[in-house]
Amino acid sequence: MDSTTDERRSLEQMLDVQRGEVVALLDDIDEEQARARLVPSLTTLLGLVRHATFVERVWFHSRVAGVPREDLGLPVTVDESFVLDDTDTVDSVRAAYLDACARSREIAAEHDLDEQWEWHGRPVSLRFVHLQLIQELARHAGHGDILVEQLRASAILTS
């Protein structure tokens, strides 16, 4: 990452770093591990990446691009975004996330950092959207790192 670039490029690069961290959670993970519930919440590795797809689509596809959430087929609640379907696989969830990220980049490229949209009765800028995604993806990548560590530790203990 170039630390001497302009603000927009810096935001885009930092967001892409976090996107990369999220997608990497599924590297070398099998289907059973990806669905393993190691904490009381709905959080699983596959669920985290599915949730990250939801986040991309809520912020960029819906809020910035203006596509209604219902038209995107998005869950109503955040918790539902972690729920897995029987058809979800490591490959399908990874592909959906990468597609969502690619579309988010296209949408963002069409707008100025200072352009604004309403969020909970107040305006937010594209700059805010980038920062929101950076912090949310970083948090979830950290959650995922802990799950991966737990999975690796249990594999070592059982071998």
Rank of each mutant, 00 (worst) to 15 (best):
residue 14 M to Q: 15
residue 64 V to A: 08
residue 29 I to C: 11
residue 82 F to G: 01
residue 54 F to L: 06
residue 76 V to H: 10
residue 40 P to K: 08
residue 51 H to C: 05
residue 83 V to T: 06
residue 69 R to Y: 03
residue 69 R to I: 01
residue 28 D to F: 07
residue 110 E to Q: 11
residue 23 V to Y: 00
residue 122 R to E: 15
residue 65 A to C: 09
residue 47 G to S: 10
residue 101 C to L: 07
residue 112 D to N: 03
residue 82 F to I: 10
residue 112 D to M: 06
residue 83 V to Y: 04
residue 48 L to Q: 04
residue 38 L to R: 07
residue 102 A to I: 00
residue 61 H to P: 03
residue 27 D to W: 05
residue 99 D to Q: 04
residue 63 R to T: 15
residue 120 H to F: 14
residue 111 H to N: 08
residue 41 S to V: 12
residue 23 V to K: 12
residue 54 F to S: 01
residue 114 D to G: 09
residue 48 L to V: 08
residue 87 T to I: 08
residue 17 V to S: 03
residue 111 H to G: 02
residue 33 Q to M: 13
residue 85 D to H: 13
residue 120 H to E: 11
residue 94 R to N: 12
residue 119 W to C: 08
residue 15 L to F: 07
residue 44 T to C: 10
residue 24 A to C: 07
residue 123 P to E: 07
residue 26 L to F: 05
residue 85 D to C: 12
residue 97 Y to K: 01
residue 65 A to D: 14
residue 56 E to S: 11
residue 116 Q to N: 03
residue 102 A to T: 01
residue 75 P to A: 05
residue 38 L to H: 09
residue 34 A to V: 02
residue 19 R to F: 09
residue 118 E to G: 13
residue 65 A to N: 06
residue 118 E to A: 14
residue 50 R to K: 15
residue 49 V to W: 02
residue 66 G to C: 06
residue 36 A to L: 13
residue 40 P to E: 11
residue 81 S to G: 02
residue 119 W to Y: 15
residue 60 F to Y: 14
residue 23 V to W: 00
residue 88 D to I: 13
residue 122 R to L: 14
residue 115 E to C: 09
residue 16 D to I: 07
residue 117 W to I: 13
residue 85 D to G: 05
residue 29 I to W: 04
residue 90 V to W: 04
residue 94 R to A: 07
residue 115 E to F: 10
residue 18 Q to C: 07
residue 40 P to D: 14
residue 34 A to W: 07
residue 11 L to M: 10
residue 9 R to T: 09
residue 113 L to P: 02
residue 27 D to V: 08
residue 52 A to S: 15
residue 33 Q to A: 15
residue 20 G to C: 13
residue 32 E to Q: 10
residue 79 D to C: 11
residue 23 V to M: 12
residue 33 Q to R: 14
residue 66 G to V: 06
residue 47 G to Q: 04
residue 68 P to E: 15
residue 93 V to I: 08
residue 36 A to G: 05
residue 42 L to A: 14
residue 103 R to A: 14
residue 51 H to N: 12
residue 80 E to V: 12
residue 101 C to F: 02
residue 20 G to P: 02
residue 110 E to M: 00
residue 95 A to L: 07
residue 99 D to K: 11
residue 26 L to W: 04
residue 82 F to C: 01
residue 23 V to D: 11
residue 27 D to S: 13
residue 54 F to R: 03
residue 71 D to F: 05
residue 43 T to G: 04
residue 31 E to Y: 02
residue 21 E to W: 09
residue 79 D to Q: 06
residue 30 D to M: 10
residue 84 L to Q: 08
residue 97 Y to P: 02
residue 117 W to M: 14
residue 48 L to F: 03
residue 105 R to W: 09
residue 51 H to Q: 06
residue 76 V to A: 15
residue 43 T to S: 10
residue 34 A to M: 06
residue 105 R to D: 14
residue 82 F to D: 11
residue 74 L to R: 13
residue 40 P to T: 10
residue 41 S to R: 08
residue 121 G to F: 09
residue 107 I to M: 03
residue 14 M to S: 15
residue 102 A to P: 03
residue 87 T to N: 11
residue 56 E to C: 04
residue 15 L to I: 05
residue 80 E to H: 12
